[in-house]
Amino acid sequence: MKVMNLKAKTVTIDGISALFILLFVYAALTKVMDYQKFRIELGKSPLLNSYAKIIAITIPGIELLISLLIAIKQFQYYALYLAFSLMAVFSAYIVAILKFSPYVPCSCGGILQNMTWTQHLIFNMFFLGLGVAAILLYPKRPKNLL
């Protein structure tokens, strides 16, 4: 990672962090604002129907928490791993729905609800890539364990 100087790296990482915050805050707020609809939509998913209530609360919670952690400089590096993992969970869920579910439910309300499931998957892959880039570019700091 000698190609970029420290400043360019920091700008890239902060840009990616801002994108993640934007995505998660937007996603969480649209879910919370119409919580009832979100919960019902989740209930229609063949994968989630038995846990719709718990998941409907925890998903926006986790999204907001990760956004907060990314925004705080000390936690940014580790929060990026969390963001990456959350996107991985979403992607794996979409693959499970597309490939193994007996039927494909209508896409969950809230974020980007006009996308098809395949478009959604590509969108998620893009964010997974951003997460990887940000983590690998992250400058080495003396305090850092890794």
Binding site: L47, Y81, S85, A88, A92, A96, L146
Partner: peptide, 27 residues
């Protein structure tokens, strides 16, 4: 180490969804 940690995160996430599939009614 970072790449390893990313892979672990990724596999962990996929594993969680697999567990979810396993315990869900629909499947």
């Amino acid at each position: 180490k970072r790449i390893l940690l990313l892979v672990v995160c990724f596999l962990g996430s996929v594993f969680m969804v697999i567990l979810l599939c396993f315990f869900s009614d629909g499947f």
